[in-house]
């Protein structure tokens, strides 16, 4: 009981996951972003995550985590989404961890698509310790009640990949690139849950193939667009040369 009170206070200003989904905002370089989880919350959830390999994404892991962090079993009531909060914690912390060790991706000489592949692989490998339980997490993620949060998290992850890779598109391709990458990453993650190969080489190959296909489609669409633009411009110029007033 002694512990539950400050715990509650510390949990109050927590992430925006449970309240309204926060919107993407202007990103400033002059100050650190506030951490996504309150200290108590993150202590319980990270401890719970270490119990996932044995207990799975279940309330049991959450209870074990609360005990490890020195709180009563009842404090798990402070996570209204239950086991899903562990999944969410894993997703958010792993997404933010990408930025912390992304030194090689900062030099622009590096190829952007190569950077994306590296980052996506790094993110996939972060699932390694809990991969045998990841299907439970996917089940939770696709529950209708959690779907908005998980889709949002996927969109943020895709955005993070492209930002860290140094992508510079600010036209409508901003949307299509993010959507395409999100689909590719999600399918690779699903593939990884059934991958029995050593060190997940098959997942790596799967990802590489999908990304190459994505590039091909992008090139094709871009080519068709450029061709149509050229034809239209040529038509207008041709008519102008015939003396038509356009």
């Amino acid at each position: 009981m002694v512990n539950s009170k400050p715990c509650h206070a510390a949990l109050k200003p927590s992430s925006c996951v449970r309240s309204k989904p926060c919107r993407r905002l202007y990103h400033s370089y002059e100050h650190e972003r506030p951490p996504p989880f309150a200290p108590t919350e993150s202590r319980i959830l990270s401890a719970a995550l270490s119990h996932v390999p044995t207990h799975g994404f279940a309330t049991a892991a959450l209870i074990q985590g609360a005990r490890d962090a020195g709180y009563l079993d009842v404090s798990t009531n402070l996570f209204p989404t239950g086991p899903f909060s562990i999944v969410n914690y894993h997703l958010v912390t792993q997404r933010l961890a990408l930025a912390k060790d992304a030194p090689s991706t900062n030099d622009t000489a590096n190829n952007i698509s190569e950077n994306i592949r590296t980052l996506a692989l790094r993110r996939l490998h972060a699932n390694k310790p809990i991969i045998h339980r990841w299907q439970e997490a996917l089940a939770l993620l696709t529950t209708p009640a959690h779907l908005p949060t998980s889709l949002r998290e996927l969109a943020l992850l895709s955005d993070e990949f492209l930002f860290l890779a140094g992508s510079t598109d600010v036209t409508s391709t901003w949307y299509t690139n993010r959507a395409g990458l999100a689909v590719i990453y999600a399918s690779a993650e699903l593939y990884m849950t059934t991958d029995m190969s050593k060190d997940f080489v098959e997942t790596e190959e799967f990802l590489t193939r999908r990304l190459a296909e994505g590039e091909k489609v992008k090139g094709l669409v871009g080519g068709v667009g450029a061709w149509a633009g050229m034809q239209a411009g040529g038509l207008v110029d041709g008519l102008r040369s015939k003396g038509i007033w356009i």
Binding site: R24, Y26, H27, Y29, D159, F163, V170, T171, W174
Partner: peptide
């Protein structure tokens, strides 16, 4: 690009 603002849809 720098401030991670999305372009208009």
């Amino acid at each position: 690009i720098r401030h991670r603002v999305r372009p208009t849809a």
